[in-house]
């Protein structure tokens, strides 16, 4: 009898441990937003025509705001995002990365397409009229302003370097700070893709 009790106790404990493991909440590396409203549905121009956020309903969308003259932060972040997509393997097809240019004066759609392709073939680069870029950036919490650059770059653009994730239903769900690693991005995306 004692053996049976002991076995049942062990089973319950193992069950609890397994349950705690399988039902544990995912520890997000980014900050989770519980927005009741869908993310702002912009329409901007890519190399192959108009691109709207709503075109990608059903996929996760990673939004990054930057510019092709960006000397350090943008290439570092986009390289990490590219690596994260490679870590996702087959599931990368359910994720669309869009880089919104903060430098519509210099970033043409063709130039953006060439730039983002260095990081991953599926990335899209979009731009538009200054007024629309101002609106999109503001509504996604992205501050930016021109600053003096070198003779080579003419001017630089200081900008908020967060990486944003819009879920399959079009709601902003996650904000990654600058410096997040490819593994951390992939970990959160994997979890969101399972939901």
């Amino acid at each position: 009898m004692k053996v049976k009790v002991l076995i049942s106790v062990v089973i319950v404990l193992l069950g609890l441990a397994a349950g705690a493991y399988f039902f544990r909440p995912h520890n997000f590396h980014g900050t989770v937003i519980q927005s009741p409203d869908p993310a702002y549905n912009f329409t901007l121009t890519g190399a192959k025509g108009q691109v709207s956020l709503s075109d990608f309903r059903g996929k996760l969308v990673l939004l990054y705001f930057g510019y092709t003259f960006c000397p350090d932060i943008c290439p570092a972040t986009l390289a990490n995002v590219g690596q994260a997509l490679r870590l996702l393997g087959d599931k990368a097809g359910d994720v669309q990365v869009i880089m919104v240019s903060l430098d519509p004066g210099r970033d043409t759609p063709a130039k953006l397409a060439e730039y983002v392709a260095h990081f991953h073939p599926s990335f899209l680069g979009v731009t538009g009229a200054q007024e629309e870029i101002d609106k999109v950036a503001s509504l996604y919490g992205i501050f930016y302003q021109k600053t003096a650059g070198s003779a080579n770059t003419d001017y630089l653009i200081d900008h908020t370097a967060t990486l944003l994730v819009v879920d399959r239903e079009g709601y902003l769900k996650l904000v990654f700070p600058f410096g997040v690693s490819a593994e951390e991005i992939a970990d959160d995306l994997k979890y969101m893709l399972k939901q």
Partner: peptide, 11 residues
């Protein structure tokens, strides 16, 4: 407090 949405950026 809930994380409701992103505040807009401004200058």
């Amino acid at each position: 407090l809930p994380r409701m949405h992103l505040a807009p950026a401004f200058n």
